[in-house]
Computed example of a mutant assay.
Amino acid sequence: MKRKLVRQNESGFTLIEMMIVLLVISVLLFIAIPNVAKQSKNINNKGCTAFKHMVQGQVQAYRIDLKKYPASIAEMVQDGYLRNDETACPNGEQLKIGEDGEVSVVQ
C-alpha cells in the first residue's frame, strides 16, 4: 500500500508583503515623531503654568499660617512648604515670589 503525501496549504507572508508592512510603519513613524517633538515644548510650558499655580497656593498657605508673605522660594523650602525638588518648573525655568506674594516665572 502506497500512501500519497498530501501537503497542507501553508499560507504565510511573502517577503514583499513584509516589506510593504515595514514601509507603512516607517511612514507612520516619520509623520508621528516630529509632531510629538513639537508638542513637548507646549507640554513643558503647561506644566510650568500648573506648577506656578501650585506654588501660588503654597504661598497663600504660608501667608495664612505665618501672617506674612515669604521672601523667596528658599524660605518656603526651609519652612517646609515646598520640597527641595520643587523650586523650578519642569522645563527648568525658575520661579520668584514678589513682595505682594505673586509667583512669577523668571525669564
Rank of each mutant, 00 (worst) to 15 (best):
M1V: 12
M1F: 13
M1S: 14
K2Q: 09
K2H: 13
R3T: 12
K4W: 07
K4S: 07
K4F: 10
K4H: 10
L5E: 07
V6H: 11
R7P: 08
R7V: 11
Q8N: 08
Q8L: 13
N9T: 11
E10A: 09
S11G: 07
S11N: 11
S11F: 04
G12E: 05
G12P: 00
I16E: 09
I16F: 06
I16C: 04
E17P: 01
E17G: 05
M18Y: 09
I20H: 04
V21Y: 12
L22I: 13
L22A: 10
V24N: 09
V24Q: 09
V27S: 09
V27F: 10
V27I: 15
L28F: 15
L28D: 06
F30E: 10
A32G: 11
I33L: 14
I33R: 05
P34K: 02
P34F: 05
N35T: 15
V36E: 05
V36P: 00
V36Q: 11
A37F: 15
K38N: 15
Q39G: 07
Q39D: 09
Q39E: 12
Q39S: 13
K41W: 06
K41T: 12
K41F: 06
K41Q: 13
I43Y: 10
I43D: 12
N44W: 04
N44Q: 14
K46C: 06
K46F: 01
K46T: 08
K46D: 06
G47P: 00
G47S: 01
C48S: 15
T49F: 03
T49D: 08
A50L: 14
F51P: 01
F51L: 03
K52M: 11
K52W: 02
K52H: 00
H53N: 14
M54W: 08
M54T: 07
Q56K: 06
Q56H: 06
Q56M: 03
G57L: 02
Q58W: 05
Q58V: 08
Q60D: 14
Q60G: 05
Y62G: 00
Y62L: 03
R63K: 14
D65F: 09
L66T: 14
K68C: 04
K68Q: 13
Y69L: 02
Y69I: 03
S72P: 03
S72T: 14
S72W: 04
I73V: 12
A74S: 12
A74I: 04
A74D: 11
E75K: 05
E75G: 05
E75T: 05
M76V: 02
Q78H: 08
Q78W: 07
G80A: 08
G80K: 02
Y81R: 06
Y81M: 06
L82P: 02
L82C: 04
L82Q: 03
R83K: 15
N84A: 10
N84S: 11
D85T: 14
E86P: 00
A88R: 10
A88G: 03
C89W: 02
P90F: 07
P90R: 06
P90T: 07
P90H: 09
N91D: 13
N91I: 03
N91S: 06
N91C: 04
E93V: 10
Q94E: 07
Q94T: 10
L95P: 00
K96N: 10
K96P: 01
K96W: 02
I97T: 01
I97N: 01
I97M: 00
I97R: 00
I97L: 01
I97G: 00
G98N: 08
E99P: 03
G101H: 05
S104D: 08
S104V: 14
S104T: 15
S104K: 15
S104L: 04
V105N: 02
V106E: 09
V106D: 00
Q107N: 15
